[in-house]
Design a binder for these strands. Structure first.
Lengths: 401, 401
DNA sequence: AGACATAAGTTCAGAGATTGAACTTACTCT
DNA sequence: AGAGTAAGTTCAATCTCTGAACTTATGTCT
């Protein structure tokens, strides 16, 4: 199951058609900044007249701005069009196991303000209140003030019930069946626009695809390696959809079995990927206490043999996990993030080596699936949640106010 | 990457809108036979006038037929609408490792004719010629003759290059980079309509979702357990899309690693799922020759201890595979097919038991993902390929001639 | 049986979005 | 300076959907 921007099997009236064309124009400019009206007419297969009218209305509403005059190739030069980054603001937040991350960004994903609050979240209610306070702080900064808010996206560390805004489970927070947005809303009556929430790996995946310009991959998978292991898959370069699954369990790759009959996992099954590679399994293997920051504790110890062995084994498991995703969903691009990437080569080399060595076994080609590692993924999920807000407005039923 | 029915980021003109509304009406009646014009107007959010005009044109073109007068609830009774199964025919075929399967079916997926030719395909060219001959035979049967052909779908046992009609690899046929439709076309100049080809598990998955009426699952996964193991995932109940991946490797679950450092697979890697559960691994474990039919050889031997142990181990691996898919893609429904299902309980019980025992570990719910086993999956993929033809016409750019 | 209520389906003038052709604008090349 | 080319605008024509009025067909109440 995917996020659908139009759940019903609706047909369309003229108003719908107009909206569709406006959002097609906006998408084209968003993906290829500097397009001219003539370019849009060609690519969207609309007439110059329709595009002219559509662009004009998007200019008036503050979504687009006219840019420089382009070089002529023997005729009247075209006028470049760009997203208008000055009028709107998107808010994104992530509730993580070790802290709250917040950002405010523009239509093109440019970060205006960000904040990372280190803390271990307690109850959903207290966390919501604190997050709301921090968001109010962001709203009143100079670079944000005066902009029209399009909405707020919240990324959470666990599966979300599809279709409902319910966090089903966050094992590392001890939360279950939380309607987090409902807890947040009373504290933020002034934050206007669309509110959405999603799983952190799915938000991250979405943002990595959605804010990209130029050549957009057909699909993208984000693997989030932290306390647990999760993934998010986005498909469709033109209208990107996040795969969720009936129960929101899509991407719970930490609980795919890699070692039948292996160690017990906290989920009760044996041999889950998380028993081999995850923050908690590394802690368990090396005896690092919950109170210590795992990464800070390990970085000075990377030369110790037992640390090296532990990370190499974990890395090998991560490599297998990546290969299994390659043979299950075969994304156009893989992005690896989460706090564990900060451990560097000791963990990543075995993983990337295994993946490279085995990804072409079936087809015998030399084509490599691009795999990018994000060293600092602090605000990736929060920014992705903001991207989801924008997408739900552009592709959703609303009217591009 | 998914099959997209409109590859570009096109916007729409009035003609597009009309086509969209016609196909929305057709889809509604297809999914809910017996709908009235008034029902359609409600569900598609169109006015009675628009629906009336649309239905009239679909009636004239032979896609719909008027049925019985429905019971009135205190007003004029509505006229039931149904797919018109009398005018069109869809052709579907599967090239399998042990034979060719062909069907001709109606718009609603009702099989008109079918044929199963047992043989081991040789070269692509010879196979194409033979398949063409068999298809011509189907075209001239009484129940097919006179119908307007909408096209042909061909299912093949290997990954297909996305966007191109190229079979990248069929390990069990020894084929590589075959443009099968191009080989077939010269022999079938009279078979009109849209031609498509796809991987057999993907075709099967598509057909299982697409021809269903009533409550349509949001997604469906078909697991094909035969000589090798493959899967196909379809998402979106309203506009179903098959997940393919950049290289067409999505669903190659036979080569996900279940046992790091395990047995060597024919792909060169170690511990692939196929080394634990597949036609060839069962043959290897029990020493059954290629020439023998695996199923026929085993059915009389199900009481033998070594057979039971082998099948139980294979079944357990299959159970893990299903659970891993559950935690990776979380389909709304799983359908298990392929020749191995004919082995019955000995193989299936361990698989289904493991899946049932572990699928709810994360959320702690009691909700079960429906898992259906198809005992006789002979024509499932061929019929699915026919479904893909229909879908490409209804949702594609063509005009519902 | 007849009158009334209710709901399905049709008709048609009107609204609204895209179109295509003609036109204007603006730059390059000779 | 003039011809050529391409971008963008204008506007009457076209096409589809809409909304309200109308017709048709059945159930229900008296």
């Amino acid at each position: 199951m995917s996020t659908s921007y139009q759940q019903q099997h609706k047909a369309g009236d003229l108003h719908f058609l107009k909206r569709l064309n406006r959002s097609a124009i906006l998408e084209l400019v968003r993906r290829t900044p500097g397009l001219t009206r003539a370019d849009i007419a060609t690519q969207a297969q609309l007439t110059k007249a329709t595009v002219g009218a559509g662009v004009q209305s998007l200019l008036n509403q503050g979504w687009l701005r006219e840019g420089e005059l382009l070089k002529s190739s023997g005729g009247r030069p075209g006028r470049a069009l760009h997203l208008n980054d000055d009028n709107h603001v998107l808010f994104g937040a992530e509730v993580g196991v070790h802290g709250l991350r917040l950002i405010a960004c523009t239509l093109s994903g440019q970060v205006l303000e960000s904040h990372h609050e280190h803390l271990v979240p307690t109850t959903p209610e207290v966390t919501a209140e604190l997050l709301a306070e921090l968001l109010r702080g962001l709203m009143h900064t100079a670079s944000v003030k005066g902009r029209h808010s399009l909405g707020l996206g919240v990324a959470l560390p666990g599966p979300i019930a599809p279709g409902k805004a319910v966090l089903r489970l966050a094992p590392n927070l001890g939360w279950r069946d939380i309607r987090f947005l409902d807890l947040l809303r009373p504290h933020l009556p002034r934050l206007e626009g669309t509110w959405v929430m999603d799983n952190e790996a799915k938000s991250a995946a979405f943002g990595e695809l959605y804010f990209r310009t130029g050549n957009i991959p057909e699909s993208l998978m984000y693997v989030s390696a932290g306390t647990g292991i999760g993934s998010g898959m986005v498909e469709g370069s033109h209208l990107p959809l996040v795969t969720r699954g009936v129960q929101g369990l899509a991407g719970e790759i930490g609980h795919t079995v890699l070692q039948p009959g292996g160690l017990y996992c906290h989920c009760g099954n044996r041999g889950c990927a998380e028993t081999l590679v995850s923050g908690w399994s590394i802690r368990a293997a090396l005896g690092i206490a919950e109170e210590e920051d795992l990464i800070e504790a390990l970085l000075p110890r990377l030369n110790e043999p037992d640390v090296q062995v532990t990370l190499r084994r974990a890395g090998e498991a991560l490599g297998i996990l990546l290969l299994n995703l390659h043979h299950t969903q075969n994304p156009s691009e893989i992005v690896l993030g989460g706090s564990l990437t900060r451990l560097g080569e000791a963990l990543l080399s075995p993983a990337l080596d295994y993946f490279k060595a085995n990804q072409n076994r079936l087809l015998g080609t030399t084509q490599q699936v691009p795999l990018r590692v994000i060293e600092d993924s602090t605000f990736i999920a929060a920014r992705g949640a903001a991207a989801q807000v924008l997408a739900s407005i552009i592709h959703g039923p609303s009217d591009l106010s």
